[in-house]
Nucleic acid binder design. Structure first.
Lengths: 363, 363
DNA sequence: TAATTTTACGCAAACGTTTTAGTTAGAGGG
DNA sequence: CCCTCTAACTAAAACGTTTGCGTAAAATTA
């Protein structure tokens, strides 16, 4: 790979850039221009009862005409909050999480908050660093979905105890009591497994995230329950964990090889997460296995392309956008609440199972 | 759709949240504890020559022990910059842009900058609002990819003239002289069209973004050039513009209907953008057209799934991550540069054409 | 020893707000 | 005419830093 450079010379460029405050008129400028004190102007702008209607009108008109906007940095410093919320996600380049972020952004934006996004790339170290970074960025609250490597959540407990509002979404923890939003993971896996069983599959494998994160447990439970109802034990050899949730293709390749090497090899696979699902589909195709004849596949994915995959993919869709919205609404309520909140809820959003050809039964 | 609520009561939760400054030790606290002046402490921490080695050591040790972190808000206010950069993109829930953001974040993070992401959803109004919002958030620089609706860029000219560093990526403008990063759009469309011609297709349609944005023009030029070299005029009826770049499925549905209603209907389609490409594929499948027999398809997309689509999709891949990195590096150089920059470059990144079954020729 | 320089620190202003505690002028009451 | 009260405003401190300037003491020089 190489790349071209096109150079061009700019003749002018003389405006001296005075830090962030270019073109910015301050409250002090208004005061001077109107022969008022700074505090009068401030109060007039904030519609204080202490200021006469006449003065308010003059000040507000001048402010509007000169496009005055309060400096949010100064406001933050004075008021002790920054009107920004921190987001910690595994990766933005992931269908599900980018939809969540979309939802977060839409609510935050409306409320005048801005968001600071950080990615863990499924690394615990990175998660700790990101949390630390956000804290010192003086965020007013945090939205977080744990990394696959995260077992210890001391870094979150500490700041939560110190009063930072936190809302967990998707990959949550039991160890901190606060608002949480998840999809109905149990039902997602249950419905999918049930669908496979109903379609005549009997040897159903499960390729999933590491066992420590919440979604894995919940989904495993749904899978087990469906099997149990069909009179099956949960076959240990059929459950494969990907240490980094499929971040590396080798994780899934290994899992698949192991499954295919089994004496009694599976006739269907249930996968979790966008990454694992699409990679599994890719590998099955690569291995030349016919789907669904030789191997059925149902997976969690938020891609809009499930319909045009080869074969079209039976999938569990999670309401990512809604999750982002809800989590942010909860966080804002925590932030804006005057007195400490003592009652928390875990909001469970419904999932949807879309049945397509990758599980076209054998009945 | 409905959803469950699980309530739980939290017994404690008494820590009064004191704004953003929970647990935070200030420079003043250090000064008091060490019986020094505030300025001495500040200078010691910043390793000023004015402070003796002994004092520096004492101060730094105390700071480390008590986990002192400077308040970035106060620093921003004082120093006139906020160590944050604003991003304006059409949508984060888009393969290409989320990869770009990933690249942006990786560079910005390393340099200690944080990013504020905003989405235009292809709306001009929203773009203007976002830019305004970012300005008043005191960003130190801006990374922007124009919305499809954007024709007038006064809102950007103004702030650029006032000295805000801006770097354009992907959808750029000629009207502002600054650093820019794009993919080699001409070559992408040229190679794709050329490949179709070489594979025996002769009636090649082009479904693309609106004609006002840069990528559309560049790609159209590449498409035309390839046709010209094959002795073809650019057929006006074969070029279809989607006003919102495929945001709404109807845009593409209409384009497709018009193309298929043509007397001399096309035997191949070149699409641009993730959204247009995948939707086109979806619709062609829905219409029951055999790909590539009845209609070949090559499209711009950054999905990792091109291989497992039905059929596997010949596609033009743009280095999104690299684009984000490069744009951010350029922006940081602009921000960090002491004297005004007068020489700008437009960096062109190479694209890659992946040939798959959706264009399996008719030779 | 006196003059000068250097070292190492403190003081105070500044960034742009918000807010507490005054202050002034005028109105109203007695 | 004095007192009190209120309306409408101002002064100043504060948020947590950074930084130019001042200065005492120590070190150096003459």
């Amino acid at each position: 790979m190489f790349s071209y450079i096109v150079n061009c010379i700019n003749v002018v460029a003389l405006c001296s850039f005075t830090g962030m405050n270019f073109n910015t008129i301050t409250i002090r400028d208004i005061a001077k221009a109107l022969n008022l004190s700074v505090s009068t102007v401030s109060k007039a702008l904030r519609d204080s009862y202490e200021i006469s209607g006449k003065t308010k009108k003059i000040v507000n008109e001048y402010a509007r005409e000169h496009n005055y906007q309060p400096n949010p940095i100064a406001q933050s410093l004075k008021q002790g909050h920054s009107k920004s919320i921190g987001i910690v996600v595994p990766s933005v380049a992931n269908q599900f999480f980018s939809q969540v972020i979309n939802g977060i952004e839409s609510v935050a934006y409306e409320a005048g908050f801005n968001v600071i996004i950080t990615q863990t790339h499924e690394s615990f170290d990175r998660e700790v660093k990101n949390v630390d970074h956000l804290i010192h960025r003086s965020i007013d609250g945090m939205l977080i979905s744990l990394s696959t490597e995260t077992n210890d959540i001391e870094h979150l407990k500490r700041i939560h105890q110190q009063g930072l509002p936190i809302v967990f979404f998707d990959r949550i923890t039991e160890e901190i009591e606060t608002h949480k939003v998840i999809a109905d993971n149990f039902k997602g896996a249950y419905d999918a497994t049930r669908h496979l069983l109903d379609s005549g599959y009997r040897r159903i494998a499960h390729i999933t995230s590491p066992p420590n994160i919440s979604i894995t447990k919940e989904r495993l439970a749904g899978y087990s329950q469906a099997l149990a109802e069909a009179g099956q034990e949960t076959p240990e050899t059929y459950v494969k964990y990907c240490p980094h949730g499929g971040r590396d293709i080798s994780e899934i390749e290994n899992a698949l090889h192991e499954l295919l090497a089994l004496e009694n090899k599976p006739d269907a696979i249930l996968t979790t997460s966008d990454r694992i699902t699409t990679t599994t589909l890719f590998l099955l195709n690569k291995f030349g296995l016919k789907i669904p004849e030789e191997m059925a596949l149902v997976g969690y994915t938020n891609t809009t392309m499930a319909d045009v995959l080869n074969p079209s993919l039976t999938s569990i869709y999670q309401p990512g956008f809604e999750m982002g919205r809800k989590a942010t609404e909860m966080l804002l309520s925590l932030i804006l609440n005057k007195r400490p909140v003592t009652e928390f809820e875990t909001h469970v959003l419904p999932i949807q199972l879309f049945i397509r050809k990758s599980t076209a039964g054998r009945k």
